[in-house]
Every structure is written in structure tokens, then in C-alpha cells.
Design a protein around this nucleic acid. Sequence first.
DNA 1: TTGCCTTTGAAGTAG
DNA 2: CTACTTCAAAGGCAA
Length: 474
Amino acid sequence: MPQLNGGGGDDLGANDEMIPFKDEEDHEKIRESAFTESDLADLKSSLVNESEISQNSNSAVIRRGQQEDQRIYTDKREHLDDVPKHQDGGMYKASYSGYPFLMLPEPYLPNGPVSPSSNKVSVVQQGMHPLTPLLPYDHFNPSPPHIPTDVSQKPGVHRHQSQEISGFYSLPQGQITPSMNWPNQPVYPLPSCGFRQSFSSGLQSSSSFPRFSHSLMLQSGMHPTGIPHPAIVPPSGKQEHDQFDRNIYTSSRANDLLFGPVRSGIVFKSHAEMKREKEPKKPVIKKPLNAFMLYMKEMRAKVIAECTLKESAAINQILGRRWHALTREEQAKYYELARKERQLHMQLYPSWSARDNYGKKKRRKRDKQQDSGTDPSSPKKCRARFGLNQQTDWCGPCRRKKKCIRYLQRGRCASPHSSDGSAIDSPPSPVNHPPNPASPTSSPLPQSAKRSAHPPRLSLDFSRIKTESHNNPD
DNA sequence: TTGCCTTTGAAGTAG
DNA sequence: CTACTTCAAAGGCAA
């Protein structure tokens, strides 16, 4: 396992001749000094301050938003109360229990990177629905037996009820994925946004991994076989529309029955909408979530609680750092879950392809790239700047393979660099080289991780601290 | 209302 | 085969 903290950050076999930028020379010097504990502490405190500042400055706004969330939640509950309740609390359980049980082969188990028995990744367990083991939900502790009443009152988070109805595939916005063991989660010594020291694996404390949108319990999320699946969402694409569709399907239909479609149409639907409703809806099957997405789903609520942040971009930054701070084993659990997700998805939708959803979002990156023809952050220029030789060399400043290009495409190479540009996330030393994606090892990480553009990074990565954005040359 | 932000990983396309 | 792009979740925010 490449513990990328060599500190030395030597050449690492990179043959590329680096062309340091004005500030990169300093970065190189800094990188060569070890990343000490004091550095870590400084970064921590800076992040803590950042979090606190953000918390203070936004507290009023946040409170307002929380009240709004509560209102929305109440509204949604009113809709959901119309929906037949499912037993056993767990929404995902109910939903998945509707699936045909597909005993998937476990090609990974004997020789695979992860042995479920060894790392407690839930596989088939006795006494549960046969399918649930394939999913993260049980693995992540379905409903805890006790949730203090004050939990549901925790600002900005709604819990026990949505827990019953939440879906692993996207709750509508406004409903925060419940973190089941929230009350029990460790008290972090620091606000701990993004630091492993204060983060205990979510697998022991975690949330339910709600996946099924309750709308899927209704009409929209139906697999052609009649099996509901969370990956199927209404064709509108945006999940906010999930709520919209639910309104249509429940209240509007009820109104139709009572008053006729014309009169009820004034409630929710315009003529065009009604017309559209008549058209056969082509359900959108979402991509299965990858390991990091699963991790985010689980940990988001915790981060929100700890940092009093609600902005997903900031939260995702924190989660990204935490992800890197996870041990290999901890990450492997999520990789395993993601693999099961993909397997299940593949079983349910054998003809589905990720290509099906292409073009549903704006191709902003392509547009940006066109605009950045003279942008030094364009990939080609990035390679030129950092001496990257396609995929064979390490990025000069950050010592990462390839991926720095990706960040540079976004206009900055922030990820691999610290606030001063030094490569905190030190490259693997020649002795401790990262696993070659092309050469499988005994790594617990899945093949997908191995062939990923980047070897899984397990060292701390404090580079994406929000306040450091000013360091971007842009 | 829609897209962006921000993260990583999987899978797609393009050359 | 490699490089690059798109999408998956999430919620605030801006246009």
C-alpha cells in the first residue's frame, strides 16, 4: 500500500524534466522537507478556524435554512403519509425486498481484494433478507434501536421519519440523509473537518445508506420487470423533480379522481405537463454509486453536523480529505460495497449503459475547454508545463500521475498541492511506489481502483482547504 | 429554473 | 491503449 508520505518526495522515477514555475521552485523546496506533526497541527487549526469562521458567519443563515428545511420536511411528510408505510422501518429494506434475489457470484471473495468475512463487509448474513447483504444499507447499520428524540430536533437534520422512507438513490433535496448513529458518533476532539484523527470509520457508526427514493415506491421507479429500484428516477433528471413527480402522482391523481383532470390540473399541472404525462415516461436509470459516493452519502450528515456547513461543495471537500485519510481497509469496504452496487445494478439493468445518461447534464467542461484554448490550464499546456509525458510520468509539482491534469483542466492544480503549492500529498518514493494499475497486486482495493487514473491515495491530503483558493494562480 | 461548485470513481468517448 | 469527459450525490448560490 502506498503510503504516500515519503516526505522526501524525490524524483520517484519520474523522468520528466520539470519546468518549475515561479512559485513551484519554492514548492519543491517545501515539499522536500518532511511533513511534520507541527505542519499537521497548523493545517488542522487553520481548517478549524476556517470551519468556525464559516460557522459563525453563516449561523444565522443556517438557522434560517434549517427552519426552512423543517418546513419542507413537514410538507413532504404530508405527502408521504399518503404512501403506504413499509414495515421494518428501513425503506431500503422494503424496496429491496421487492427485488428478485440475485445471488451474485462472488468472484472477488476467494481471491478478490476484499474478504467480506475479514473486513466485515456485509455479504450474506443469516436472518436478513437475502438481497440486503448485497447492499450497503445493512452494512451501514440500519435503523438503530434508539434515536433520542433530540436527534430529530437537531437543527438542519431530519431523521427518524425520513429514515423510514429515505432512499439510497437520492432523496429529494431538503431531506437530509439520516445518519443512524448520529447520537453515538464519537465526539471529535476538533471540528475535525477532514481529518482522520477525528474520524472513525463510518462502517461502525454509520448511517443507513438510504438509497431508495420514496417516489420509487410509487409509480416511477419501476424496473421493467415491475421491480422497483432506486436507480430508476423520473425522466426529469434532476432529483428535485422527484418531489414534483410525487406530487403529481399522489395529490394530482387524487384530485383527478375527485374533480376531474381539468380542475385538478390547476393544482399541479399545466396543459403541457398533462400532455407530457400522457406520454410514456422513459425512466432514467442512474449510475450506481461508486465507493466515494457511498462514503459521501454516509458521512455527509456527520460533516454537516460537525462543521455546521450545508454547502455541498465545501462538505465534499472535507469528505474528500477524509476519504484520503481513511485506511486502505476502510476504503476497501466502500469499494466492496460499490462493487456490489454495480453488480446488482448490472443484474437489474443488463442493457443499461452509463452512456444512456450522457448529455443529460450540460457539457460545461467541454465548453470550458474550448474556451481555454489559450488557457495554461488546458491539458496539453499542463503537460508541457509540468513535464508530463502522457501517463508515464509524474506531475512535476505535485508528483501525481495524470490526475493533476484533471485538476488543471478545471483551472487549477489545487488538489495535489498545499496552500503554498508544495506537494503535501507526497509522491510515492521509489521504494514505496504505488501499485501499478496494470499489475494487479494483493491490494484489497478493487480492480477498478487499480486501473483508475490514480492509485488510491491513502495519505492525508490537506491541500483542498477552501481558504487556500487564493493560492491558485488564476 | 437551471447550472455551477466540489469531491472521487466508474465508465464512456475520442484519438 | 491512453487521455480525456461525463455522471453519480448534495445543497447553497448565482444568473
